[in-house]
Design a protein around this nucleic acid. Sequence first.
DNA 1: GATATTAATGAAAATGGTTTCTATTAACAA
DNA 2: TTGTTAATAGAAACCATTTTCATTAATATC
Lengths: 158, 158
Amino acid sequence: MPRGRESWKQQPWWYGRFRGCGYRLTVPREVILGVLSKTSGHLSAEDIYLAVHKVYPAIGLTTIYRTLELLVQMGLVFKFNFGDKRARYELAEGSKGIRHHHHLVCTHCGKVMDYTDFIDEEVELLNQIEKGLSKKFNFKITNHLIQFYGLCEKCQEK
Amino acid sequence: MPRGRESWKQQPWWYGRFRGCGYRLTVPREVILGVLSKTSGHLSAEDIYLAVHKVYPAIGLTTIYRTLELLVQMGLVFKFNFGDKRARYELAEGSKGIRHHHHLVCTHCGKVMDYTDFIDEEVELLNQIEKGLSKKFNFKITNHLIQFYGLCEKCQEK
DNA sequence: GATATTAATGAAAATGGTTTCTATTAACAA
DNA sequence: TTGTTAATAGAAACCATTTTCATTAATATC
Ligand SMILES: [Mn+2]
Ligand SMILES: [Mn+2]
Ligand SMILES: [Zn+2]
Ligand SMILES: [Zn+2]
């Protein structure tokens, strides 16, 4: 497989982020980012392991966890908890043109849906809240989590 | 200890909820609700176990978990995940005059703070979102989770 | 108040996602 | 090409939570 490192190939968008932090560009890291880039879903560590395993059977589950932790810490990947008890991961907004979004979680079947609606209104409220809370509590907000729980179309029918 | 069941004592607000569902009023359930009523913090199952254990050493951790699950399912208690890996519990809004609120979580020291600011504005936005999403996705929202992550006053100083 | 029914409990064991340990491998600077 | 050391694989450990099952006690009935 073309590693792209020494070649003509255009380097992916994340190369600079790694080099800048002094992290090495390894096959597992590339492959895991590749898997995350190719899906629109919210994958668990095991999901990613299985996808990776098909092509690179030598890459172990431990490395999946370690790499995901690194990617989260670098801000390239978001880690979520949707109520099933495994962590779930997706590429962060900005990377690869992904829009800022939140999630609808069906409490009956576990389905997770992205939505990007009302983001403008949300950002407005969030700015207001951020200002207010940083003044009141002297708390510096860096991130937020918004999720809606309920019943999806199919689960309402029953 | 006064159980209050057969006595002069005014029955706590949750008694009706149990009877209505056909659940028995047991000592562990009373004691656990008692612990949750007396704190303003966000307790883990183990926190609750230790508090209960001081007064009723016979009550086991398993019962704490089972009871919390029941209380969550009954809507008397909320279950949260703040990033340390244990679930955390607090009495639901409404019970005992607790106001609707969300949380600020310090990603450095783990401190969790309640805030009740901007709830009116939030409710307005949430209604808008709920209408929009239920129309677009035919998703019936029953609940929402909002958390802010960042640095608390103390952790900013470092 | 005594008794029967069965939901609820406690202790121990199992579960399962995640982390740690350690010897080995490979990225990359020189 | 070589040396340094970060990164990896696999096995074992971890640990919050759940399951199992024999025992207890809450409630309804007498
Ligand atoms: Mn998403
Ligand atoms: Mn709270
Ligand atoms: Zn559903
Ligand atoms: Zn802090």
